[in-house]
Design a binder for these strands. Structure first.
Lengths: 342, 342
DNA sequence: GGCCACATTGTTAGCGCTCACATTTCGTGG
DNA sequence: CCACGAAATGTGAGCGCTAACAATGTGGCC
């Protein structure tokens, strides 16, 4: 690597040093066939000697393809979105794509569209949106742009209406998760299950609530009114204070682990033991939940799989495939000690 | 906005529609002076009508400036790094920069350099590295590149040796945090403070441990051997099992909240009450720590400030300032109920 | 009224790459 | 031993933008 270069070496510098044309260098770089082995080697050597790196901007300009994937992600550090983002970035990076992130502080349509615009300005090849909220995700779907778009953790086009067929979705089957948790509680002998829900404009929250209600209905149990939370431990604590004072409550499905922690806290303060007096099931399987008091039975989502799926869908779309492909990842139950048989 | 464009509108399309030259369009776009108000308006209208967006790749090619900031961040979802990353991305975005992320799965030199290379290939204008580990951060410092680099949460050049003056650092004063926690425990009347540490190759961990030891030494207390952890609740649990069995242990400073949760868990299992029997202080102030059992006294870091500082340092460097600027953010103590007076 | 300074606009040449095509080289069979 | 097609390489244009410079227009002042 040279030390005192006035300006970064270009393809022409490499070509000159290797005694070939710039086009041959380009061919070597892009792994084209029809380059003699000896030439290829000479070019490689020159590249190394000069410390040459291809200029992505120039390539993007020439090809009209940036090989960059854009992500819209919430500013929050909620476990789900943060995990999804990390997994997506890693997967995309491993696939040889650059990843450009645009954070949104709120899910208001305007904010989300601004973020998408920023990405579009960069001519990203495709966009993944971690925007798990009703209105916003839908606002995305009809962006007037040919850029492939996948919604992560977004609206499953369950109803085969496929009206907004524009975008693909990869998501965890939240409903199934809710079912899993509720069924587990019922299996343990509880007559019904109470529920602390997440914000209902989140697909995750809505799905979990739906799954919970569906199982109760199928089994002919009473469906108690859900206690709304906002994902935070503090809101879980408030819900716990409420539910803990009701003697008939002996099984609670909480829509995420953070709120479950709050519930545990409130129950503890009220002197109601978990799991002896009340069984609790959470959702997310955050790494800490194994050490809540007591260790929390919860539902685990495979973010890795979601991310892989999302990148896969995007790449496929870039290859030309037009039909949007939805993918669903199934969550699993992680049993610990916050549930006891009745 | 047109619907059926064969190809995206370029500056020339705008120019034609507005009846000016492409250069005038460029001037309007870049806010140059010396454009008649009427002309500016005409151009703006044409831009809107065509739905034109400037092509960043072309601009980057022409100027040699991508106006993109690169970030190297760990794949993990540890609270500190994740918060830092989110804050940095938002701040950078607000400053009008695109943000490109490169995740590393480990902090081995090779992995980190690969990530940086990926960023350099994109010709990012500057790089922020969230690589809070000894070896790796140092490996970065002497990268042979004119690209401005700031290490977030990296090595403070405390000793004014300034040998590796190449890179700037913005970080939380971890030592001060360790002091705060330890002093608080001492003030509560404990004769000494035990310590569950993070991995000592992390600057954060090392700094917290140093601060803890320094206060004990200053006050002439015995300095017990630290129990090493790895940031996870599970490792905290193991440490807690150890310390909880020692009757003389009645005050523990744990290097992060996740491990503190594990300690709390172990202590609970061993029947040692917090804070009645043992006082515990954590570090991070994760949102959940307010609902640990009991609510955890901990040390809060202002990630927002760190991120703002990092972006600031980078921009300054881009403006030409050569001298690397280090910045330190001071943490604060958050009192809750895991500490009791003796 | 003519000239000059300044405000405004236009023209040209790249930035570093890829694409489409032109050209050369080489091995082979008649 | 030469023609011929495939393999290997080279050439020129252009992607959409900015920077430097050139060319207009405009008003004020003597």
């Amino acid at each position: 690597m040279d030390v005192t270069t006035g300006r970064e070496p270009s393809m022409f510098d490499v070509a000159k040093l290797a005694g070939v044309s710039h086009q041959t260098v380009s061919r070597v770089l892009n792994g084209h066939t029809n380059v003699k082995e000896a030439t290829r080697l000479r070019v490689r050597t020159a590249i190394a000697e000069l410390g040459y790196r291809p200029n992505r901007a120039a390539r993007a300009l020439a090809t009209g393809q940036s090989r960059t994937l854009g992500v819209v992600a919430p500013r929050s550090t909620l476990y789900g979105p943060a995990s999804l983002l990390a997994a997506f970035e890693e997967t995309a990076g491993a696939a040889g794509f650059a990843v450009s992130v645009s954070r949104v502080r709120t899910f208001e349509t305007a904010a989300v569209q601004l973020a998408v615009t920023a990405l579009l300005d960069q001519r990203v090849s495709a966009i993944a949106a971690i925007v798990p909220v009703r209105g916003a995700a839908e606002a995305l779907a009809d962006l007037p742009s040919g850029t492939p778009l996948v919604t992560i953790d977004g609206p499953l086009s369950t109803a085969a209406t496929t009206a907004t067929a524009a975008a693909s979705t990869v998501a965890v089957d939240q409903r199934q998760g809710g079912r899993l948790a509720t069924r587990h509680l019922l299996d343990a002998g509880h007559s019904t299950v109470w529920h602390v829900s997440g914000p209902q404009d989140w697909f995750d929250a809505a799905g979990r609530t739906e799954g919970w209600a569906a199982v109760l209905r199928e089994e002919g149990r009473t469906v108690p009114p859900p206690v709304p939370g906002d994902w935070t431990a503090a809101s879980g604590y408030r819900a716990g204070q409420l539910l803990g004072r009701m003697p008939e409550v002996d099984a609670i499905f909480v829509a995420n682990d953070a709120m479950a922690l709050g519930v545990l806290h409130a129950l503890h303060e009220l002197g109601r033991r978990v799991p002896e007096d009340v069984s609790v099931v959470g959702f997310d399987d955050v790494p800490e939940s194994a050490h809540y008091i007591p260790p929390l039975t919860t539902v685990r989502q495979d973010f890795e799989a979601v991310a892989t799926g999302a990148v896969g869908v995007l790449l496929e779309q870039l290859e030309g495939s037009d039909r949007p492909a939805d993918q669903v990842v199934t969550p699993t139950l992680v049993e610990r000690s916050s549930v006891a048989r009745r």
